[in-house]
């Protein structure tokens, strides 16, 4: 059975100088992190930035090379077992039991926490509803869609009613509807007072869900703050995207003077500006050019900080 609830600290994660080296490669480099109780904290960064490694250290699944780490008031990795009683994990790679039904996956996972009996049955019923999987309770997981598997993994992570949930790319590879459903569920969990740490490639997801976030690259924090703060502090407020024949000539001779900063991505030119009007006026004189004006968002910050080139 679950232990007596312990008073939760104000900071559910406190990391100082967290470092992970594999051979000569430093994958996580002297990271300082703090996650407040009840918030959704985002860990963003390009592929290979060290997000998964960081999360694995937080959950005690990878030993840090250096640094101090406290999660839910427990010293990690020493007290990882006690901490696990109050932690839920949605790993990047699904690890559902392929030989089991949806229901068996939940009850077997519950057994790892020592949970059983009527209270568990009720909990499983609730979680099946939460995950929209009631109709699939007795179905083998081989037949589930990607979204269903992700929701089952989320439900499984909630089996012990955790205080903190660690989600590594919970919506990667899902279609927009499936993603929306997960977002909704994560918001419900936040409303219940749970703390969330998530990594994602989708800036829209981070912008919608995260109270605070850090963007990391090569294992180092580039920036941290709320999504709105980051947009305010790190990028011009307006973006105009331009493409079309003769764009480069036009930009070099005319457009450039109105723009603070610009960047090419494929055949599109991204212009970042404090005041968009002069550029838009000039663009309206050129029927050859297509353009779109929008407010700057987190994706623009991310691209500015981590570059446009593809990482795989």
């Amino acid at each position: 059975m679950l232990p007596e609830p312990k008073i939760l600290p104000d900071l559910v994660v406190e990391a100082h100088g967290l470092t992970k080296r594999y051979g000569t490669q430093t994958v996580v480099d002297n990271l300082d992190l703090s996650v407040r109780r009840g918030e959704c904290f985002g860990l963003l960064g390009p592929n290979g930035a060290g997000k998964t490694t960081t999360l694995r250290m937080l959950m005690g699944a990878t030993l840090p090379s250096a640094g101090e780490l406290n999660v839910l008031g427990y010293t990690i990795p020493q007290q990882a077992r006690q901490m696990h009683l109050r932690l839920g994990v949605v790993p990047q790679q699904d690890n559902l039991d392929p030989d089991f039904t949806v229901m068996e996956n939940l009850s077997t996972y519950a057994s790892y926490f020592g949970l059983r009996g009527a209270a568990l049955d009720a909990r499983i019923t609730d979680l099946l509803a939460f995950a929209n999987l009631e109709a699939k309770a007795h179905v083998g997981i081989g037949t589930l869609s990607g979204g269903m598997k992700r929701r089952l993994t989320l439900a499984r992570a909630l089996i012990n009613d955790p205080d903190l949930l660690i989600l590594d790319e919970p919506t990667t590879g899902l279609d927009p509807q499936a993603r929306q459903l997960i977002w909704q569920r994560l918001r419900t969990l936040l409303a219940q007072g749970k703390s969330l740490i998530l990594t994602t490639h989708y800036m829209e997801e981070a912008e919608r869900l995260c109270d605070r976030l850090v963007i990391i690259d090569s294992g180092r924090i580039l920036v941290s703050g709320s999504p709105a703060e980051l947009v305010r502090q790190h990028i011009e407020p307006h973006v105009v995207e331009i493409h079309g024949r003769g764009m480069d000539e036009w930009f070099n001779s005319i457009g450039q003077q109105f723009v603070q900063r610009s960047e090419h991505a494929g055949e599109t030119l991204f212009c970042y500006l404090a005041d968009e009007r002069p550029l838009l006026d000039a663009l309206r004189q050129c029927p050859e050019l297509h353009f779109m004006h929008r407010r700057a968002n987190l994706e623009d910050v991310f691209i500015k900080l981590t570059g446009k080139e593809l990482r795989e």
Partner: peptide, 14 residues
């Protein structure tokens, strides 16, 4: 392959 142990290691099992 199935990462079953990885799932277990996120629980109180060692």
């Amino acid at each position: 392959v199935q990462n079953t142990w990885g799932g277990m290691l996120a629980t109180p099992l060692s």
